[in-house]
């Protein structure tokens, strides 16, 4: 049910190894905060737009990811203009937009499975130390992906059942049955896993 945000493609950004992109993102993050020049930040923002565009993302998908941020930026912008002046506002907004844009470009051009592989590599020393069981982490990740659609479906079923009984279709009233069924499900799933040995 949950489709990754990754856009299939073969451009150069897609082909760059995930580890490099993450490292570049972190460096950019630090760098952008050290830069105070509005033109440099504008250039960074323009670059991030180009990178996002180069992933081949559709306008609707892009807007959905950016929509929430636009409102936040508007509020921040108004605030900054009033208290700090136009230049400061421009610097703050461009910096945030550039960084979020770069991060978005990385997300759109990198497979979830590649990022998971990086997490596995990061966890493996802890696994060897015995602090983290990598197998259990992988299982937990799979279980979550497996059951999101089922829990969503159950949420819809409860809504319909309550509507049929004339109760207010308010999400908050559905919480108890949703949580109870999730707990019950957890018990059954755990038994099924145990029954299959390791």
């Amino acid at each position: 049910m949950i489709e990754p945000l990754y856009i299939k493609g073969d451009r150069w950004l897609h082909r760059l190894p995930a580890g490099y992109k993450l490292a570049a993102l972190v460096i950019a993050g630090i760098g952008l905060f050290l830069v105070q020049n509005v033109w440099a930040l504008a250039a960074a923002f323009a670059l991030s737009c180009v990178l996002v565009w180069s992933t081949g993302v559709g306008a609707a998908a892009c807007w959905r990811q950016v929509r929430g941020l636009v409102w936040v930026l508007a509020a921040i912008g108004v605030f900054a203009v009033v208290f700090q002046g136009w230049l400061s506002a421009a610097i703050v907004l461009l910096r945030i937009a550039a960084l979020v844009g770069l991060a978005l470009a990385v997300t759109l051009s990198t497979r979830s499975s590649d990022l998971i592989a990086i997490c596995e590599r990061a966890l493996s020393p802890l696994d060897r130390l015995g602090w983290v069981d990598a197998g259990k982490v992988a299982l937990a990740l799979a279980l979550t992906l497996r059951f999101v659609p089922e829990i969503w479906r159950h949420y819809q079923e409860i809504r319909e059942a309550q509507a049929a009984r004339g109760l207010a279709r308010h999400p908050l009233a559905l919480m108890v049955p949703l949580v109870v069924r999730t707990l019950k499900r957890a018990q059954q799933v755990a038994q099924a896993i145990d029954a299959r040995g390791e």
Binding site: A142, L143, L145, Q191, A192, A195, R196, G197
Partner: peptide
């Protein structure tokens, strides 16, 4: 458990992977 398999009543809660 290597020799005994178990099939439960609830069909969907036995399939663990996506």
């Amino acid at each position: 458990r290597r020799q005994v398999g178990f099939v439960f009543q609830n069909p969907e809660n036995q399939i663990v992977y996506p």
